[in-house]
Design a protein around this nucleic acid. Structure first.
Length: 152
DNA sequence: GCCAACGTTGGC
DNA sequence: GCCAACGTTGGC
């Protein structure tokens, strides 16, 4: 069992949107960064848990939790010419981009803001808080996971 | 393989 | 909207 943090712009897709999806599940598509891809494709397993992080918005922070439903599969939007995530260099015979299905677990009573996370010494090693970090999918240690749950 | 130019992310 | 930091592309 591993823990993760996944970013989404709430204007595009928020935890509220996930909660309101049929079955409360969604294909987490559109990841187009190799390091993030590797975490999805090689690291994630069914049953893993992830924080849902709201980025590029008024109050960036962790909005809740979700569960990884299955191992990764190729992201079909990479091959869809009509998708904004279309990647012309992508080869159907040798998929470049992957996605996982996620399921809503919990919406926090409040957003645990980026500013607040930075105030905690225990969390200073988090990739999220490192200068210049832009990774949209990253591992979280159990210690960090438990600590953040305790902040709600 | 180097690296300049360009594109993107994402906080502020 | 600005811009720092990072990733990718492509000429050489």
């Amino acid at each position: 069992m591993q823990y993760w943090l996944m970013k989404s712009e709430p204007d595009e897709f928020s935890i509220h949107d996930l909660k309101n999806r049929p079955g409360k599940t969604e294909a987490w598509n559109g990841v187009r960064n190799y390091q993030a891809r590797n975490h999805i494709r090689d690291g994630m397993k069914a049953g893993d848990l992830a924080f849902f992080y709201h980025s590029s918005c008024e109050i960036p922070g962790i909005a809740g939790t979700m569960q990884i439903l299955d191992k990764a599969c190729p992201d079909p939007t990479a091959l869809d010419k009509l998708s904004k995530y279309f990647d012309p260099g992508s080869d159907p015979a040798n998929p470049r981009w992957y996605l996982v299905e996620v399921k809503f677990k919990k919406q926090f009573r409040r957003i645990i803001t980026l500013t607040e996370l930075r105030e905690h010494r225990t969390l200073q090693e988090m990739n999220l808080l490192k200068k210049g970090s832009r990774l949209s999918v990253m591992p979280v240690t159990k210690k960090q996971w438990d600590y953040i749950l305790g902040l709600e």
